[in-house]
């Protein structure tokens, strides 16, 4: 599987005008392949610019974007091929739906790729399944659906192109907790099956801590930190510098440690938190029983 990487990229908007702004400043990140990378950063840190670089919607002012070791801008005329290999789901993707039926809307991307009927049908149904869209919904108009369902259809529309890299910009923004779980859970399942790379851009420390194998922290257009979740959340001070926070469960353990109730703070998901707290309680109970 081909990995995706950016090397020394800078993006400058409005060069030469008084509104000149450096959205990304000499950024180098190896996103690798077959894993989930979380990208976090404060508003205006360059996350969305980075996302649009990866599939060639934005051209870097300097530096290169490498997909499978090749510069995606080597042949600018074939940039649309890169867009099929790197799927990008924008924030609030439900506003891009336009077709008469859900099926047709999901098929829009694969059709543009030139997929034949048989493969197209398979791709659409497969993507729909992973995104939690029932068969009965496929013949409905996308405008009849609820907000959460629309979001699923839009994400399925990108997933159906079967990209090697799937970039999701705030996929769960504005959804209820159950909806978040279902959408991201389905996509993770899909990713695992395809062994593709998934990039999740999010504000939510909880989501990132839960799903990501590797985390990139952006701040003011620069890479502030990158590493495994353990490495990132271990250095809370540095995270605070980028106006970010720890996952709430980690914060809980920081407080517990202060009160000498817990020994470690390397807890990043609720599941792990529950396990640790149970262990702590059991230990105390057995301790009391012995005493």
């Amino acid at each position: 599987m081909s990995g995706i990487e950016v090397k020394n990229v800078s993006v400058v908007y409005g060069a030469g005008t008084p509104f000149e702004k450096k959205a990304l400043d000499n950024v180098s990140i190896d996103f690798g392949s077959d894993r989930v990378v979380g990208i976090i950063g404060h508003t205006g840190s360059g996350k969305s610019t980075l996302a649009m670089l990866l599939n060639g919607l934005n051209k870097p002012t300097e530096g290169t974007v490498l997909l499978g070791g090749e510069d995606i801008w080597a042949r600018p005329k074939e940039i649309s091929k890169v867009r099929f290999r790197v799927g990008l789901v924008f924030q609030y993707p439900e506003y891009q739906l336009f077709e008469e039926t859900v099926y047709k809307d999901i098929a829009f991307g694969p059709k543009n790729m030139g997929m034949d009927e048989e493969n197209l049908d398979r791709a659409v149904r497969n993507a729909a399944k992973f995104c939690g869209i029932e068969d009965t919904m496929l013949e409905k108009s996308p405008f009849e659906l609820s907000g959460g369902q629309k979001r699923r259809v839009a994400i399925a529309g990108v997933a159906a192109m079967d990209p090697e890299v799937l970039v999701l910009d705030e996929p769960a923004a504005g959804l209820d907790p159950a909806g978040r779980e279902e959408i991201i859970g389905g996509l993770l399942e899909y990713r695992k099956q395809r062994k593709s790379t998934m990039l999740i851009i999010s504000h939510s420390m909880e989501d990132i801590a839960r799903y990501a194998d590797y985390i990139v922290v952006l701040d003011h257009g620069k890479v502030h930190m990158q590493g495994t979740p353990a490495e990132i959340f271990h250095d809370a001070e540095r995270l605070f510098e980028a106006s970010l926070d720890l996952p709430q469960v980690t914060k809980l353990f920081v407080e517990l440690k202060k009160r000498a109730l817990a020994e470690e703070t390397d807890v990043y998901t609720c599941k792990e938190g529950v396990r640790r707290i149970k262990a702590i309680i059991e230990k105390r109970l057995t301790g009391e029983a012995n005493a």
Partner: peptide
């Protein structure tokens, strides 16, 4: 602009 980007990402030419 946003919608154009989104459709381009789905291969609209």
């Amino acid at each position: 602009d946003k919608i154009m980007c989104a459709q381009k990402a789905r291969g609209a030419d």
